[in-house]
Amino acid sequence: MPVLSQQRWQLNLSCRLHWWKDGDECVVFNAVSGKTHFLNEMGAHTVRLLTVESLNRKELINRFTALYEDFILDDDVLHYIQDMLQHLEDQGLIEAVSS
C-alpha cells in the first residue's frame, strides 16, 4: 500500500463554478476567472467531492473506492491522482489547505 500524505484539499473558495455535462465528461466554467475547463469523470468527481468537504488523499481514495467498483489502488493510480490534484490546483479549481 503506497504511503499517502496528509495534505488536505478543498474547492478553491474563490471559484464560482457552472457545470455542463455530457455522459462522463464535464466542461466547467469558473465565473470568477472566466476560464473554461474540461474535466474527465474522475476530475469531475474530485471537484464535486471537494466542494462538499476538504479531503486528504486517503479520504479521497476511500471515496473513489466507494464510487468505482473496479477501483484498485496501485502506484500508477496513485501517481495519476497526484497529477490530477496538481493539475486541478494549477487550474485554480482546488486549493491545498493546512490539516
Binding site: 455542463w20 455530457d22 455522459g23 465528461e25 464535464c26 466542461v27 472566466g34 473554461t36 474540461f38
Partner: peptide, 18 residues
C-alpha cells in the same frame, strides 16, 4: 466527436467567448 471535445473546440473559434 464527443460533445465535450466539440464544446472546447467551439470556444476556440469564437471571437468574443472570452
Amino acid at each position: 466527436i464527443k460533445k465535450a471535445q466539440a464544446f472546447l473546440q467551439l470556444t476556440t473559434h469564437s471571437f468574443n467567448y472570452g
